[in-house]
């Protein structure tokens, strides 16, 4: 196991407290936790593609970074009145 895989494991584990915030606090805080989780998940994908020496996998991280941000924008917009 190299340092990139260790870092990916640490960051993936850090998603669990964010899940806890999602489950046990208000819906507003849940959206904030979702935003932090999006960053953590795309970082973990970056690290895994480097750790496994699979360069094409980095596209997943880039696509996920965009999609998670757009998803959070959509949630924020809907939570003004509708959710």
């Amino acid at each position: 196991m190299n340092e990139w895989e260790i870092a990916a494991a640490v960051i993936a584990a850090a998603i669990l407290p964010c899940l806890g915030v999602c489950l046990f606090s208000s819906v507003l805080s849940a959206l904030v936790a979702l935003e932090v989780t999006g960053t953590l998940a795309s970082t973990a994908l970056m690290l895994l593609s480097e750790g496994f020496h699979r360069q094409p996998f980095v596209d997943l991280a880039l696509a996920f970074a965009f999609l998670s941000m757009m998803g959070a924008f959509a949630f924020a917009r809907l939570m003004e009145r509708d959710l």
Binding site: E35, T39, S42, T43, D59, A61, M69, F73
Partner: peptide
């Protein structure tokens, strides 16, 4: 692409915070 991913997350983050 990892630089691009990091830049996307670092630049869009504050915009997302403001929008939220």
């Amino acid at each position: 692409k990892t630089l691009a991913t990091g830049a996307v997350l670092a630049l869009i983050g504050p915009v997302l915070v403001h929008t939220t």
